Simulated assay, not measured.
Amino acid sequence: MSLVNAFHSHAHNRLCQLDNPTAYVKGLRLKDLKGCERAFSKSNALAPSTQYTSIFHRRQAIACYFEHNDELKVYANLTKFLLNNYKQALDLLSNGCVTLKWLMHELGVSDPATFKLWLDKEHEYLRSLLCKPVEETLQMEYWQ
């Protein structure tokens, strides 16, 4: 199964996100699946300096960049990353059920299955938008 993060809908479409959501995959939790994208985005800074180099020197620069990145930045930030994730996990464990119960109360929902029902209805609605409405089409044809 392919997975799509939350921001994908803004660049592509909401229906695609509903078909392949990360938010509803059991076990995925808070992962945003953006690690590789962030790494390659940062490496884009190499492009101007390697644009006119040979294939060998371009590959050498890319290898050196990632080696340097691994040695200096990743390991230095790993402790902070793990600590922040640990704190977030503890917060979710202590407040997660309370937050869900509060949200359900605010929305007037008694059964968590209602959220799945709403998601299905949104999916059905978006699928219906794939076809042009007959009435609007007839109006446009008449106008033309």
Rank of each mutant, 00 (worst) to 15 (best):
R38V: 13
W143I: 07
E37A: 06
R29I: 00
K121R: 11
M140S: 07
D19H: 10
A11L: 11
A63Y: 05
A47N: 06
N5G: 03
K121H: 04
V98D: 14
S110E: 11
V98E: 15
N95T: 05
S94H: 12
L46A: 02
Q88W: 03
T53E: 12
F56V: 10
K87W: 01
R38T: 09
P133H: 10
A11I: 08
L107W: 06
S49R: 14
M1C: 05
F7G: 06
L100Y: 07
L18C: 00
E37P: 01
L28F: 05
N5V: 00
Y125I: 04
Y65V: 06
F115A: 02
N13Q: 03
Q139M: 10
K80G: 06
V134G: 01
R127I: 03
T22S: 12
Y52N: 15
M140D: 10
E124S: 15
P21Y: 00
I62R: 03
K34H: 08
F56L: 08
S43V: 05
L117P: 01
S128F: 07
F7V: 05
N77Q: 13
D32C: 05
A76P: 01
P133N: 11
P21G: 03
L103S: 10
H57A: 11
A113W: 06
C64G: 14
A6V: 07
L46W: 02
D120H: 05
S128M: 08
A6W: 10
R127A: 08
L119F: 09
K87L: 03
L130M: 14
Y75S: 01
N77M: 11
L15I: 02
K34E: 15
D111K: 03
W102D: 10
L92I: 05
A61Y: 04
R58P: 00
Y142L: 08
H123F: 13
N5C: 05
A47Q: 12
A61G: 00
R59Y: 11
T79G: 03
C64W: 04
P133G: 01
V74W: 13
K31Y: 05
G96T: 06
A47E: 04
R127N: 12
I62M: 08
R59N: 15
S41F: 07
A89N: 00
L107D: 07
E136S: 12
K73P: 00
T114Y: 15
L117C: 03
E71N: 12
A47Y: 11
P133Q: 06
P112F: 10
R38I: 11
R14L: 10
N13A: 01
F56P: 01
L18P: 00
T99N: 09
V134M: 13
K132C: 12
A113Q: 13
Q139P: 02
Y142T: 07
L72R: 12
W118T: 04
K31P: 00
L90T: 00
K34A: 11
L82N: 02
T53G: 14
R127F: 03
W143A: 06
V98F: 12
Q88A: 09
E141S: 04
E136T: 08
Y75A: 03
